[in-house]
Simulated scan of single mutants.
Amino acid sequence: MLLPTEKTQPKQRLEDYSILLYGQPKIGKSTFCSRMDNPLFLATEPGLEALSCYEVKVPDWTTFVKVCAELSKGKHPYRTIVIDTIDNLWKCCAEFVKEKHNIQHESDLAYGKGWQLIKDEFFRAIRKLSLLPYGLVMTSHVDMTEIKNKMSTINKAVPSIPRSGRDIVLGMVDIIIYAESVRTNEGSIRVIRTQPDESWEAGDRTEHAFGRKLPSTLPLSFKKFEQAFYNQTEPEETAGGPEDVDKPA
């Protein structure tokens, strides 16, 4: 019988959800991810040399597909899969499709077929990975795009993955986090944004499951993010100090 007889219950663990974390280069995104539960980095670009972590270098799409097949067997200790970065993985997918169809550019196939083939291949693989029983985190760099309304033009921070891939990723993940450096009277501090704003892309679909709303701004600290996710609090004198901010590798 394929039809359900009971309602599903909201998932309770952070590792049951998918996350997109994007921001400025070298701000500490990889360090943030390295604090997660038994992470495995699928590294599509350099940047992990100063971190102690489990890493698979992913120079091309074929390697990525093979690694996903290994992960699906479940014979490993990893609890979180980190794609670092999803921007470069999209490029690997595009190169794979172009080589497979012997074209130089996506537009070489008529009626937008080249673009659609890339989107289909990318979606198929990422969707299968997201359905595995592990946490999935994708990192991205940031682009500033102009958003015009009737009154003004706003520069909005968005993930730098091309629009076709961005739409797939944003529609798939449960939490979108924007990391940035903010200048204050005491100097620059690094923070994460978890709620949508006209100036950045962010969001959280887990608030109903946990009966809470993530704070719109948190220190760039996985410890602080995890506490907020589980709606935990700390004594006031130990919360939010400089030691709670993850330092970039």
Rank of each mutant, 00 (worst) to 15 (best):
N88L: 12
K66Q: 13
T31A: 08
I118P: 10
E49K: 08
M138T: 02
F123R: 15
Y134Q: 07
E198M: 06
A157N: 10
Q227H: 15
R79T: 00
R183P: 00
F123S: 14
V191F: 08
I177E: 14
S160F: 09
S30V: 09
S152A: 12
V142D: 02
Y178I: 00
G165E: 04
G203I: 08
E236D: 14
P39V: 01
D204T: 03
S160M: 06
G23W: 14
E234H: 02
K7E: 12
I176S: 01
G240T: 05
V182K: 15
L132F: 00
M36L: 11
G203Q: 05
I168Y: 02
Y17V: 02
E207I: 08
H105G: 06
I103W: 06
D87F: 03
A125Y: 05
S164A: 15
E45V: 14
T145W: 14
R212C: 04
V82K: 00
I81A: 00
V158F: 00
C33L: 09
N38I: 01
Q104C: 04
S30K: 12
C93Y: 06
G23E: 13
P133G: 01
R193G: 05
I86G: 12
P219T: 05
V169T: 08
N149I: 07
T233A: 10
E106S: 12
I177Q: 13
N38V: 00
Y17F: 13
Y178V: 01
P235T: 03
K66C: 00
N231A: 15
L218E: 02
N185S: 14
G114K: 02
E226Y: 09
G28E: 02
P10R: 03
L220A: 04
E45L: 13
P235M: 08
W61R: 02
V173F: 07
T153G: 08
E186M: 06
K148M: 08
N185K: 15
I118R: 13
R205N: 13
L109G: 01
G211K: 03
L218Y: 01
Q116N: 15
L21F: 03
C92P: 07
C53W: 06
V182F: 10
Y17P: 01
R13L: 12
L3A: 15
Q104N: 14
N231V: 09
C68Q: 09
D204K: 07
I168T: 09
L218P: 03
S130P: 01
L131P: 00
M172K: 05
G28K: 02
R124F: 02
K113D: 14
E95C: 01
I168M: 04
E146V: 11
H105M: 12
F64C: 04
T63M: 03
F225W: 07
I81T: 00
E236H: 12
D120N: 13
